[in-house]
């Protein structure tokens, strides 16, 4: 793993640990946005997986505020997240990439376990996280097909999400419809 990527992930996870302890889901969501820059530039699995896990934790916490999870399930989740965040950072500092990856996996599994214990429909946090973070990377100028591979989602899911955003409106580009229409008219002549 590149040292700049490692440094970025360590900073993010230490931030997440702090925000998790003080029950600040907004800060965690902000941290998940921050790592998108690295995910776009380096496009390697550790940054994308970290982005997904961090966002998922933030989302679970945000839901927890509004819809109370069963206490026992929440306590188990809390313990796992705290332990694994510390382990993940320790592993990365020692260049233990395999151990770090395993911690990420356990974090994801903890989110999925809590999520499934509560949600009765197939709208799971981790799946949503992949789409949402993938769409964010697309805003950074990476093609959807490329992102679909990176995040392990289908193009169908990403396109339907990306189409609903106001990304193109924010870019305020000059229209080239006229040129393209002329092109297609020539083609069909």
């Amino acid at each position: 793993m590149r040292s700049s990527v490692k440094k970025d992930i360590i900073n993010i996870l230490e931030g997440v640990n702090k925000a998790f302890t003080s029950y600040d889901p907004d800060e965690i969501m902000e941290l998940s946005n921050h790592i998108i820059h690295s995910a776009s530039i380096y496009q390697e699995e550790h940054t994308t997986k970290t982005a997904i896990v961090v966002y998922s934790i933030g989302k679970i916490m945000a839901r927890g505020k509004i819809k109370r999870y069963p206490q026992e399930a929440w306590n188990e989740f809390e313990t796992t997240v705290r332990d694994e965040l510390v382990k993940a950072v320790k592993s990365l500092k020692k260049d233990g990439v395999k151990d770090f990856t395993n911690s990420l996996l356990r974090l994801q599994q903890a989110v999925m376990k809590l999520d499934k214990s509560f949600m009765s429909y197939a709208d799971y946090v981790v799946d949503k996280a992949k789409i949402k973070k993938g769409a964010k990377v697309h805003e950074h100028g990476i093609s959807i097909k490329r992102i679909a591979d990176l995040f392990g989602v289908s193009e169908w899911e990403l396109r339907s999400y990306a189409g609903a955003t106001r990304m193109l409106e924010r870019e305020k580009e000059k229209s080239n419809v006229k040129k393209r229409l002329e092109r297609v008219r020539r083609f069909f002549k």
Partner: peptide
Amino acid sequence: KSGCSISTNDIKEYNKL
């Protein structure tokens, strides 16, 4: 809305043309 990369302005342009 399904992901075709046209903007609101593009749609106005189509209508105009």
